[in-house]
Design a binder for these strands. Structure first.
Lengths: 337, 337
DNA sequence: TATTTTTGCACAAACGATTGCGCTATCTAA
DNA sequence: TTAGATAGCGCAATCGTTTGTGCAAAAATA
């Protein structure tokens, strides 16, 4: 049976007002007698009543809900991030609505619209596409923080990783190991993280006088893409001695392509990838990779968002967290010959 | 600026009622003149108004929201399931609220309570714990479907995998390959899937006259557990020639433990695991595993839930989907000696 | 022209909570 | 005994929609 303030009120002979006050801990403020308060609490317990969050939100103009927009929750990278954000939100008594844009701008727009309609108190998004306008629009009506991906020349707060430095260091590691023929398989060309990584790769090569040797191929963060591009790379006359995969998925594709051949890792070809994933430790050989602090990113984005929500801050914070190289045996020095 | 029916109504000189009717496509039913309808639509466009879902839900007693309770969204198995469910819900114009119970019954209870307070239209849950009472309570007030895990002797609908058969077949595969010393590393002992898997394992051994040889160790679905138990198994006098890991995480731990030794896979020890995961194909050797139809489970659970929500059905459907063995080179025949 | 029918829209009451204000008892003080 | 203070609680408006009903004006019919 559905209970409301009114139904309980009628039953125990007090007004809905009184129950509401007792439940929200305003017993003293409104001088409800201990006896009455007790009576209310007992009955509320008995029929285990919980106030309708809808009615509360409507009245209080506050939903205790945040929206989380992700390109695909099935990607462990985003799943981990979601996990951190959800748990951070829960600690603050907020509920999280996750919407999956499936890397589609139309979905994304619709997702944002329903979040607004639901009057979420704030939004965290890893946007897809490269047009910030709708997000800027949204930011006018609700606190918004971007994670992972963001927009250049836009004043929307974000928390991301230092993709440039991460890629730079990974490439440097290869160069320092004597590799001169280092290929880079990129993902979605428009996305800011991808661009930053490619730039890091190129700049590192330049530093070691290998600027002319840059080979950037690929076009999406998918296994497919990694597979195909690796196939092509391996069949080049001037075969690369090292491959830098700009994502976990690309790496998986590359591994598959390499396994189709007789090349060995790392004897014939060294490998590095972006993104951390437990399974990388369990491959043979374990993979060297550039690890992003995913959980910290999620956690920081939440913190930032809640600061905006509680209006503890109104500055435009744009953060880039440091990446870490996890060095395993998928890289060995290249010896001329 | 915040728009409401009233604010727009005032501006264009009609009543809120009329706007509401136009927006919900009841122009004809309530004989709104085309001219007025047009005027409304134009203005609504201009200030891109979207009705408050809160007010709508309150009034219509329907939220177009489902709740999804998962033990941990960071686990790819559940992330994939969540992905399927979210997308299925979206196709029906429903939004999904995900709550992460972190395998904690207190969290879970609280999560369910907030879902009820938010008046979700239905709930899908992969429950933790082994006490069905609260779920049975909940089912009285809102449609509920369990996925992956369920409760025995309970009339709550669920969609799960045929864990028994999956484990039986995997064990059988090992037995048929001549292994007589097959260890099984289990996960959370109370969970129904775990129990079913262990039973499948035992029954398969019996079928091949190996009932006496059963070795069941372990206690949780974690990397740690897989690691420790494998360490112990490998140091036994009577070392098993094959290990059946009852989850992906357990397998990872086992791999790590094996790498600590000089044993080779599959020459010295054959491996099979439960759960599918892309990376299993990229290990060396690729892993044989029992794959559960995760997405199909998610999709079916959604379908089932929506049938209940739309009251197209009220029978208690309890489904077990078939698993598939994905056979790779982590198993070789055991040759005596 | 008088009556009925139809058209086109608005009124007001919900939905279930919260909250400013005010009302009635009881109590205190003079 | 009476005025003022205080304790204890309820009234009614409000949040932003939806929807049954009602009512005037226009159109159709007689």
């Amino acid at each position: 049976m559905k209970e409301t303030l009114a139904s309980i009120a009628a039953r125990i002979g007090v007004s809905a007002t009184t129950i509401s006050r007792v439940l929200s801990g305003k017993t003293e403020k409104y001088r409800i007698s201990p006896a009455t308060a007790e009576r209310v609490l007992v009955e509320v317990q008995k029929c285990n009543y919980t106030p309708s969050a809808l009615a509360q939100s409507l009245r209080k103009n506050k939903t205790y809900t945040i929206g989380l927009v992700l390109p695909t929750i099935a990607n462990p990278y985003f799943a981990d991030m979601a996990s951190a954000i959800i748990s951070e939100a829960r600690d603050k008594n907020y509920t999280t609505i996750i919407v999956d844009s499936m890397e589609d701008e139309v979905n994304q727009r619709q997702a944002l619209t329903t979040l607004l309609a639901r009057k979420v108190d704030g939004i965290i998004a890893a946007p897809c596409g490269s047009d910030p306008r709708f997000f800027e629009e949204i930011r006018k009506s609700v606190p918004l923080v971007l994670v992972d991906r963001y927009f250049e020349n836009s004043r929307i707060p974000y928390v991301s990783a230092n993709n440039y430095r991460g890629a730079f260091e990974a490439t440097e590691l290869l160069a320092q190991n004597g590799h001169r023929n280092i290929a880079c398989i990129q993902g979605d060309i428009d996305s800011v993280p991808n661009k930053a990584r490619v730039k890091g790769y190129r700049d590192a090569l330049k530093k070691y006088g290998l600027g002319e040797n840059a080979i950037v191929v690929g076009e999406s963060f998918s296994i497919q893409n990694g597979y195909l591009e690796t196939k092509l790379l391996l069949s080049r006359a001037q075969r690369p001695t090292a491959i830098f995969a700009l994502s976990f998925t690309i790496l998986l594709g590359a591994l598959k392509a390499i396994r189709d051949t007789s090349f060995r890792i790392p004897e014939d070809i060294s490998l590095v990838s972006f993104d951390n994933h437990v399974s990388l430790d369990y491959m043979i050989p374990p993979m060297t990779r550039v690890s992003q602090p995913v959980e910290e990113m999620g956690r920081l984005a939440s913190k930032l968002l809640f600061d905006y929500i509680d209006s503890k801050s109104d500055s435009i914070t744009q953060l880039e967290l440091a990446t870490t190289i996890i060095s395993k045996s998928s890289i060995i020095p290249f010896i001329e010959g």
